[in-house]
Design a protein around this nucleic acid. Structure first.
Lengths: 93, 93
DNA sequence: GAAAATGTTTCACTTTAGGGAAACATTCGT
DNA sequence: ACGAATGTTTCCCTAAAGTGAAACATTTTC
């Protein structure tokens, strides 16, 4: 599934209220999608990922769907412990 | 001031307990330093930055010194409203 | 070296993320 | 169509971020 398909499916088409609100909101939207994509690339289920990180599938679902905003430290745990990757943070001026 | 000088001044030399603990801890250290550097580049005081973001200098200080872990949405407010920049988040697998 | 500007810490309180269990919903395989 | 696997939502509590005021410390300026 492409990124756009994923967004459309979960948040509605471009121009709808729900989609617009999410995309306006401080990048939270993006990180959930990134996480979702990365997990699929690794071929992991939410439950498998949750176990690696030491949390539950319900929590992973919330983060992927931007229902709760994760802390940076939590995101890093998920990316590092769960996906074997690295979370990059940078400021572009 | 270089990044290393800044770290040394505020957190001690490499190998000291305080410095090691901070650097071990999920990138929080880095974001405070990034913010500090970016603010200096813009020639702003903590108070000036705080005003732009709509908060107080005490809060900015805490974030720069990693006394509290900021949320992503908060970091983005600071970077966008305060510094006129953009916070980038990415996952490297 | 006193005053002003800048930065840090403390105290105190409110709000919200962190987190899990379990119910519910969806998707997939046969 | 049924059951199994996967994903989402709800409920609920705890811990930590968000926040400011004011005291304190440090740095800069004259």
């Amino acid at each position: 599934m492409t990124l756009e398909e994923f967004k459309e499916k979960n948040y509605g088409k471009r121009g709808t209220k729900k989609r617009d609100e999410l995309e306006a909101g401080y990048e939270n939207f993006k990180i959930g999608v990134l996480l979702h994509q990365a997990r699929l690339e690794k071929g992991l289920t939410q439950e498998q990922l949750a176990e690696k990180v030491g949390t539950t599938k319900s929590y992973i679902s919330k983060i992927e769907n931007n229902i709760k905003e994760a802390r940076i430290s939590t995101l890093q745990k998920i990316v590092e412990l769960g996906l074997g990757g690295h979370l990059e943070l940078s400021i572009r001026l």
